[in-house]
């Protein structure tokens, strides 16, 4: 609207709009919402009683804002996950890694414990972020729109960002090539997530840990040397497996992002 209402019309509007038809009143009102100059005219047109009342209300609100509690600070960090619940499991994994590093440093005749344990270290906290037993609010989480694989992947990223620095320290301390611990860690984590929709994340993590311990850790401790699977020559294999498993997980999350993934929370 480009034409401004006359000041007579505005004062008629201010006094309740008697004698003016509804359509004109609406037009004036719509114009007032967008035009500061006409609002100023309106302010002068209201009778002193009303103006006094408005002033008192404005004063009251201003005092309320000034004396009341301030806006609440938002804690964004808590959003990313269930940090407090996972902490004990994260501490366990960290302790395990540091003990392995110390052990390896003390007894250099044994095969590298850091490399043997690293692949399954993040599985403990990853299982903990998606477990009926450890997540007290699992039943609520299961009914949310933002649940399923995307939420699990978000929580897993949180776990990895906490576990990887510890592994980096242990790896640097014992002088191993980063690829030898990083790729198995990523591969096993992706494997747990890929198996999750089939058997449940908790079971998948447990099965992978047991399989790795029985198939690799125990035999290599018995032999006293690192298996071929943890030497530089198998790096391409690890890289390939990691990429493939990550692709599977991303594919599942992409194909049915809203799938409830009931199985992720097995019973």
């Amino acid at each position: 609207m480009t034409t401004h209402p006359t000041s007579t019309l505005i004062s008629q509007y201010a006094s309740g709009g008697a004698g003016v038809d509804d359509a004109t009143i609406w037009a004036v009102e719509a114009h007032l919402e967008t035009c500061a100059a006409c609002r100023a005219v309106l302010t002068d047109a209201v009778d002193p009683g009303t103006r006094d009342l408005l002033d008192r209300v404005a004063d009251g609100i201003a005092t309320g804002i000034a004396t009341g509690p301030g806006p609440v600070r938002r804690h964004r960090l808590l959003r990313t996950g269930v940090a407090a619940r996972v902490l004990p499991w994260f501490v366990t994994a960290t302790g395990l890694m540091l003990a392995a590093a110390l052990f390896e440093w003390t007894f250099d005749s044994l095969p590298s414990l850091v490399l043997l344990i690293a692949p399954v270290a993040p599985l403990l906290p990853v299982a903990a972020v998606w477990s009926r037993r450890l997540d007290p609010a699992w039943e609520l989480t299961a009914t949310m729109p933002r649940t399923g694989l995307p939420l699990l992947m978000r929580r897993t990223l949180g776990v990895l960002s906490a576990v990887l620095p510890v592994l980096a320290v242990a790896g640097w301390f014992t002088g191993h090539s980063p690829g030898l611990w990083l790729l198995p860690v990523l591969g096993f984590t992706a494997g747990a997530l890929a198996l999750g929709p089939v058997v449940g994340v908790e079971r998948a993590a447990l099965a992978l840990t047991v399989a790795w311990s029985a198939g690799v850790v125990v035999p290599s401790l018995a032999d006293g040397q690192l298996p071929a699977i943890l030497t530089g020559s198998s790096l391409p294999g690890w890289a390939l497996a990691t990429v493939a498993l990550t692709a599977v997980v991303l594919g599942q999350a992409r194909r049915r992002p809203h799938e409830p993934h009931q199985n992720l929370l097995h019973r």
């Binding site: 609440v72 808590l78 269930v82 407090a84 619940r85 039943e139 609520l140 989480t141 949310m144 933002r146």
Partner: peptide, 26 residues
């Protein structure tokens, strides 16, 4: 939904918890 066994995160404040749920509810 309020489950029969209402599980919550003990270290969250009420506001944080309700905020977290609101976020999960998109």
């Amino acid at each position: 939904y309020l489950p029969q066994h209402f599980g919550f995160y003990p270290r969250f404040t009420v506001r944080e918890f309700v905020e977290y749920i609101a976020w999960l509810k998109e």
